[in-house]
Each structure stands twice: as structure tokens, then as C-alpha cells.
């Protein structure tokens, strides 16, 4: 898989060399091959540390929003879900997209944090683990990835596709992307369209499985299921801290707000529901919340389930179009024509 790594590294080097960007944020090698950590690269010789394996331990979009310099031009190497988060953050004025050059890597799922992540590449129907190609067992994927139907980074400036034979295809989605590829002397090729039928079928199947069993429950049982899950909570704030959409500097889950009572473990259910209210409409189902939860609460399942309900209601797809604002912070022209207390 070195060839694709090389191409991405090349792109990053070229972006830095051409001064398109001042800094690139990407995942790379830490202490050893399987230790994957976020890197802030300013020196092109560090680009060689960048890896493209199927592992994504935190949201780079959030890192840039929190700690990136707004006046700097920043390059980002990210997965489609994180690229969607980046768009959502831009809508909330947390990042300046004009200053960001995003390189999206096509993604068929990441492996769960904690499992051996050493050199794993996931393709539509195969998985390569340390050089060995095997049919993809879906249960190695993180739960949110199994439900994902947005494998292609259409929302990034450059799109990269890894191929099972180690090859790599690169395309530009935007003018900025073209500039990047020019700088890297990579010819813009139209990528062959992907047949996503099988993958959409996979997403539908897992949604049916994950959500279906909850939906089939009597309402009261569902309530008690979630209340029981939340009772495991140790209030580490990990889900909030990991969530790319949770951007508030002043968070109303914190004790001084006295909305959620402090001095209690587990925290009241509002701790979870409060955050759900804030980001449920814009969840990109990146799964960072669930990966950060020490107690194994299926957080992303809950958020994705609500998002799937809200998306058709508000006709809103999170993370694609910068111009459509989060549904509860806006009203549409269509709204003005409707009377009554519901949106129907």
C-alpha cells in the first residue's frame, strides 16, 4: 500500500513547497507503525510520516477548529465523515474553509480503536491486514462505519481513492483541488464512477439491524434501554470532547450552568439528551463519540438514529452544502407557507 501513501505524501509535500498551505494536519506514525497520531506538519520532510491506513482515531476537523490558526492556510488529509464535519464547523463559523485545502481519502470503514490497527486497509469487499488480503468481515468495522453510505469524499478539494492492488487514483473536486494537483504535477483524471449499490445495501442492512431492534421495542422498553445505557456514564465528557460538531466554548453541560446537576454519578439523563439536542440535527455519524466512550455506550447509534429521523423532516443533509444552515437555527421559505403547529 506504499504507493498510495507515497502519492498522498507527495501531494502534501507539494502543497507545502508551493506555499499553498502553511501547515498540513494529517494522521501519521507516532512511536511505532501502529501508533497513529495527528501530526501538524510544516516541514515537508515530515510528510513521510503520513499514513493512509483505515484508522482514524480523532477528528482532525475539530483539531483545526480548536487549535488551528485562522489566518494560516491549512491542508487537511481526512476521511469523508470528517470532511463533512469540517463543512458543519464552517457553517458554524469555527473554521475558515477559504483557508483550508482538504484532501479526502475514500473510506470503506475504519477499524475500532483498541484493535490492532497496524496496516489495515479496507476496500468495498476486501480487507488488507499487514499485506494479506482477505474477504471483508463486516464486524471488524466500527459500528458507525457499517451504517455509512458516504464513502466518496465529494466535499473535499482533492479526492483520493485507494485501490486493493496498492494503486491510487486522484481527482480534483474544486479549483483549489486543481491547484493542489498542479503543484504536485499530478494529472487530473476523472475517476471511474463507483458502483455503490452493494455498499448502500450494507448501510441499509446495518441501519435496519442497529435501529430496527430498537424501533421494534415498545416505547417504554426503548426508554429503559437508553436510561440503562446512560447509567453506565462516568461523565468523562469524552463524547463531547471528541465530537466535531460540539463546538461551543461555553458548554451548557458544565456545572456552572446548573442545567445538568453536578456532584452526581451517573449524571442525569439530560447530560446525554442535552448534547443530543445540540448536535442531533447535524450529526455526521463519524463515530468519534462512541470510540471515546470508556463505558461502551452506543452513542453514535443514538445520534445517527435521530439524525435519520430529522434529515427527511427538515430536508437536510449534514456536511455537504455550505449554504444550507443547520435546520433548527434557520427557517425555510417553505416554512412560511405552512400554517399549523407541525411542519407537515
Amino acid at each position: 500500500m506504499t504507493k498510495c501513501n507515497e502519492i498522498v505524501q507527495d501531494i502534501v509535500r507539494s502543497m507545502l513547497r508551493a506555499k499553498l498551505v502553511d501547515e498540513v494536519v494529517a494522521f501519521g506514525r507516532g512511536i511505532n507503525e501502529s501508533d497513529i497520531v495527528p501530526l501538524f506538519i510544516t516541514d515537508e520532510k515530515d510528510a513521510e510520516k503520513i499514513v493512509t491506513i483505515s484508522y482514524y482515531p480523532c477528528s482532525l476537523a475539530k483539531l483545526v477548529a480548536l487549535y488551528g490558526d485562522r489566518n494560516k492556510k491549512i491542508g487537511l488529509v481526512l476521511r469523508p465523515c470528517d470532511a463533512r464535519s469540517l463543512v458543519e464547523l464552517a457553517k458554524r463559523q469555527q473554521v475558515n474553509l477559504a483557508n483550508i485545502y482538504s484532501i479526502g481519502i475514500e473510506c470503506y470503514g475504519v477499524v475500532r480503536a483498541g484493535s490492532n490497527s497496524h496496516q489495515v486497509y479496507i476496500f468495498p469487499d476486501t480487507v488488507q491486514m499487514d499485506g494479506e488480503t482477505k474477504p471483508l468481515a463486516e464486524d471488524v468495522l466500527a459500528p458507525n462505519c457499517r451504517r455509512c453510505e458516504y464513502m466518496v469524499p465529494t466535499m473535499t478539494d482533492v479526492a483520493v481513492r485507494l485501490l486493493p492492488d496498492g494503486g491510487c487514483l486522484v481527482d480534483a473536486n474544486t479549483e483549489k483541488g486543481q491547484a493542489v494537483l498542479e503543484a504536485a504535477s499530478i494529472a487530473v483524471t476523472d475517476m471511474p464512477a463507483l458502483d455503490l449499490t452493494a455498499l448502500k445495501e450494507r448501510a441499509a442492512r446495518w441501519k435496519e439491524k442497529d435501529f430496527g431492534e430498537l424501533k421494534k421495542m415498545a416505547a417504554k422498553d426503548r426508554l429503559h434501554y437508553w436510561l440503562a445505557q446512560w447509567e453506565k456514564c462516568i461523565k468523562c465528557y469524552g463524547c463531547r470532547n471528541a465530537c466535531p460538531i460540539c463546538y461551543c466554548k461555553e458548554c451548557y453541560l458544565e456545572p456552572e450552568k446548573q442545567i445538568v446537576k453536578n456532584e452526581a454519578l451517573p449524571p442525569e439523563a439530560l447530560f446525554h439528551v442535552g448534547r443530543l439536542l445540540h448536535v442531533g440535527d447535524s450529526c455526521t455519524d463519524c463515530g468519534q463519540c462512541e470510540a471515546a466512550c470508556p463505558m461502551g455506550i452506543p452513542v453514535s447509534k443514538l445520534y445517527h438514529m435521530l439524525y435519520e429521523e430529522l434529515s427527511p423532516l427538515f430536508d437536510y443533509e449534514s456536511g455537504f452544502d455550505l449554504a444550507t444552515l443547520p435546520p433548527v437555527s434557520t427557517i425555510s421559505d417553505k416554512d412560511l407557507t405552512k400554517t399549523g403547529v407541525t411542519l407537515d
Partner: peptide
């Protein structure tokens, strides 16, 4: 800031509030 270290065998990319 402090963030979890995904590759560490004890935390496995998770932390408690004190850690965060």
C-alpha cells in the same frame, strides 16, 4: 490540551474526566 492516546493498551483511546 489533553486527548486520549489511541494506541495505549490501558486507555485504548478513552479517558476519564481527570484524564481529559
Amino acid at each position: 490540551t489533553t486527548t486520549p492516546w489511541a494506541e495505549h493498551p490501558v486507555g485504548e483511546g478513552r479517558l476519564c474526566m481527570k484524564g481529559w
